[in-house]
Design a binder for these strands. Structure first.
Lengths: 113, 113
DNA sequence: CAAATATACATAAGTTTCTTATACATAATA
DNA sequence: TATTATGTATAAGAAACTTATGTATATTTG
């Protein structure tokens, strides 16, 4: 996605969160949305995105709907019911993760001084 | 490290931050410290930790100092000068990462309402 | 006292997730 | 007319991990 390794493992959660928010999205749209939200800092590559979408679909978390817009193909993805439930878990894990990382980076000062 | 994939890619940064804070630490100590700080949520496995330490050492970011305590070997690691400089960069990247992930999870409400 | 747990390091095989490169196709812009 | 933008896809390889195993000593528990 970017130079920083930190984003490794977070792509699925990002995709699912965006789909929960926007109902349905297509791949290219996801890359642009992420670029916008992160002000250009996070660029999802196709080589990461499409396999991830296919896998989430294979796992039954996403449904696909193909449309043709301006003579170009679009594959819209949306969360299945299972996908919705799983998204709740993933976001909860993400919050824990962020909290833990902040504890590590910004530890509470020792009580002895 | 744990069930959640999110921690993937953050191990090096965690190690370097802890070393910056504590001067020198040995492997097992790092695992226990992380467990403590995250209240048991993040358990670094040896299979992840030791290769990571060896790689950071090979990259010239860490120095090693072997000690024998209670008849048991300990390999203390500490940041080199280069390692200190690199830690600053990594922590800055981590802050950007956390900020971006929070923007994705908790987007600013639209101005139109 | 024996067995299990804690301390301490290490590596090898396999999996997952990503990067990099390539491929195809149409629309819009320079 | 050539490049950029839009849109999807896959294959080869790298990187970071999990899981399993191995070695060794110290401490605690039954």
């Amino acid at each position: 996605m970017k130079n920083s390794q930190l984003y490794k493992g977070s792509l699925n959660t990002i995709i699912m969160k965006l789909l929960e928010e926007n109902g349905k999205m297509y791949g290219y749209e996801i890359t642009q949305k992420v670029k916008l939200i992160t002000q250009g800092e996070l660029n999802i590559t196709e080589g990461a995105l499409y396999p991830a979408l296919h896998k989430l679909e294979a796992e039954g978390l996403l449904d696909v709907e193909i449309e043709k817009v301006d003579n170009r193909m679009r594959k819209y993805y949306k969360l299945t019911e299972t996908g919705h439930k799983e998204t709740v878990n993933r976001l909860s894990e993400l919050e824990d993760f962020i909290r833990n990382m902040q504890s590590l980076v910004n530890p509470k000062p020792s009580l002895e001084f």
